[in-house]
Nucleic acid binder design. Sequence first.
DNA 1: GATTATATATGACACGTGTCATAGGGTTCC
DNA 2: GGAACCCTATGACACGTGTCATATATAATC
Lengths: 201, 201
Amino acid sequence: MIRVMIAEDQHMLRGALSSLIELETDMEVLAEVSDGDKAWEVIEKEKPDVCILDIEIPVVSGLELAEKIRATEQSCKVLMVTTFARPGYLQKAIDLEVEGYLLKDEPIDYLIDAIRKVINGERVISTDLAATLFMKETNPMTERETEVLRLVKEGLTTNQICDRLFLTKGTVRNYLSAVIQKLYAESRQQAVKIASEKGWI
Amino acid sequence: MIRVMIAEDQHMLRGALSSLIELETDMEVLAEVSDGDKAWEVIEKEKPDVCILDIEIPVVSGLELAEKIRATEQSCKVLMVTTFARPGYLQKAIDLEVEGYLLKDEPIDYLIDAIRKVINGERVISTDLAATLFMKETNPMTERETEVLRLVKEGLTTNQICDRLFLTKGTVRNYLSAVIQKLYAESRQQAVKIASEKGWI
DNA sequence: GATTATATATGACACGTGTCATAGGGTTCC
DNA sequence: GGAACCCTATGACACGTGTCATATATAATC
């Protein structure tokens, strides 16, 4: 019997997945939770064989949870599930060496199948995503530029950034000017968006 | 037998809902589609009793589809389903007099139940949403201000807006200044966000 | 008829933003 | 010793943005 835990914040999907997995004769759903904190409790107490983790769950995200699972050497296999094909998420998941990474745009049969595969020690990834791994671009920004853009993402203004990094106003603006050009953006906001999607900040 | 159509672009959820509805003895799923165009074809040909429409589906949105259904006096009941509790969406759905409006954050049982209720001529709305209807705020912007903000949302700059509306630069900026204050925003972008969520633009 | 709200406009001020030219330090590597 | 990068900085220019004071005309309302 494969013991599964589901961490997904959208109630309707969570319930539906749970019901359908229960219908499989070789699987059972140990618990279904709506946030990362509760998920962690279940993982520690119940030691599920497979965790299905949505990336965008409250309190502790699926990626942070996967990191924690790896750090504490839990035996459970991790299957990430998400709506968006963000290269950033995918990259982090791969760095964490999770067993599977699926899009919610796949049929459920694919998920059920994936559960059995990861139990067998196989790796699973949505076909759409496999392609993006080959087309992976490298971050054209320097370290400092990346750092500055990260602060813009946090909502800081030019002045707040130069206070934080002990730089002058002009330097910060120069960095951002360079970033905007390197990313073919038209404004800092757009640059943040582009870099986020690529997983660079 | 209640004949149901499901229009939902997220494959996993669509399939799951479909399977679970099929398990009910008094319901059958006529078709499950991923966009508004296909949904319309099914509605015209198959005349389902109930349409479950996600608001955010490609090509033709769930709201546009509901409008079309009303305009052509199709007999089918409409159940809107969405992720977000945007008052704007809700307001439009109510204006269209749809039979039900549920959040994906509800359990599936609630959805199944809702299908039976709308068939019986009842109205269904998520409890969370019913509350927001009472707290509905009125748009503090004048017509002209709303119009200008709508153009900002489309991505136009001040200059493009004054060309479009045959106004001077100063006037447009005055309007936006007023809008920003009325909505307690800190920039035009934030004003767009606030007004969108309230359903004013 | 006076008041109030709206649509429109102008001019001015302060700031934020993006770009450019330029320049002095520091690594790293051929 | 250069060449090629990176980090840092300055000063200047052009534009965009938000605010304010002020003004006129029109329409609605009391």
